[in-house]
Design a protein around this nucleic acid. Sequence first.
DNA 1: GCTTGACCTTCCAGTGGGGGGAGGCTCTAT
DNA 2: ATAGAGCCTCCCCCCACTGGAAGGTCAAGC
Lengths: 137, 137
Amino acid sequence: MKSGEAMTIGQASARSGVPPKTMRFYEHLGLLKPAARLANRYRAYDESNIQTLRFIRRARDLGFTLQEIDKLLGLYRNRRRASEEVKRLALAHVVELDHKIAELTRIRDTLTDLARRCRGDQRPDCPILEELERSPS
Amino acid sequence: MKSGEAMTIGQASARSGVPPKTMRFYEHLGLLKPAARLANRYRAYDESNIQTLRFIRRARDLGFTLQEIDKLLGLYRNRRRASEEVKRLALAHVVELDHKIAELTRIRDTLTDLARRCRGDQRPDCPILEELERSPS
DNA sequence: GCTTGACCTTCCAGTGGGGGGAGGCTCTAT
DNA sequence: ATAGAGCCTCCCCCCACTGGAAGGTCAAGC
C-alpha cells in the first residue's frame, strides 16, 4: 500500500490501535463521519482518519467519555477556538477522577483493614462477613 | 405492621436501602431466591430477607460485583466454611482496587500536568490537544 | 478454475447494574 | 365511589463496546 493512500478498515485499525468493530461503532454513533467506500463497499481510510482515530484512542486512554471526545474533536479541528474550553474540560475531568480515586481508596482501606482482622483459617468467624451483615450504613 | 411479619417490596426497600426495581432485578438474576407471594401476587419479605438485602447493599458499597456477592452470600449462609475463602475474595478485590486507583491516578497526573501547561486563554495553542494528536502511545 | 482462508459487510444480542416509563391490578382513605 | 399510591410485568435506555451469525470479496495456491 502506498502510504498516504486508501487503507481498509483492518489496516487503519492496525495503524491507529482502534479495533475495526469499534471504528464501525464510532461511525454509527456519529463520532466519526461516514467513511468513504470503495467499489466493493469496503470502507476506505486515509492519513487524516488515522490521526483522528489516534486522537480518540489517546483521549479514551485518558478516560474521557465519547461525548467529551466529540467536543475535544470539535475544538481540535477548529483551532481558532480558545484553549480555555479545552482546559476547562480537562480540569472538570480531573475533578471527577479525584472523586473516584478518593472513593476507591476509602473502599480499599476498609477492605484491607477487614481482611487484616480476618484470620483466614478454617474457623468460621470472619470480620468481613460480620461487617457486611451490620445494620444500615 | 407487626415486626417480624411480612412486608411488601416497598417496605422492605425502605428498611434495606435497596430500591424495589433493584430487588426485582436481583431476583431475576437469581442473586435473590424468588420472593414469597401474597394472594394478590405481591412479593412478601421478612426479616431474614432484609438482612440479606443489607448484606448485598454493603457489599455493593464496597465495590464487590454481583458475582462476588453471590459467592459471599454462599459463604455467609454456610458459616462452617472457612473464613479463608472470604479473606481471599476480599484481598483479590483489594488488588483490583489498587490497579484501578493506580491507573486513575496516573491519568489524573497526566491531565493535571497538561492543564497546568495550557494557558487556557483565547490563544489556540494547547498542550492538551497537542498531546492527544501525538503518534501512537 | 476452484478451493481455502482472511478479510470485509450488515445486523442482532449481550455485557453490568440498574433507571424510566407504559399499561394494568390492588389497596387504602376519604 | 373515587382518587392516588403502590404493586405487577414488560420492554427500552444508558455506556462503550464485544461476539457472533450470515453472507460478499479477494489473493494465493493447486
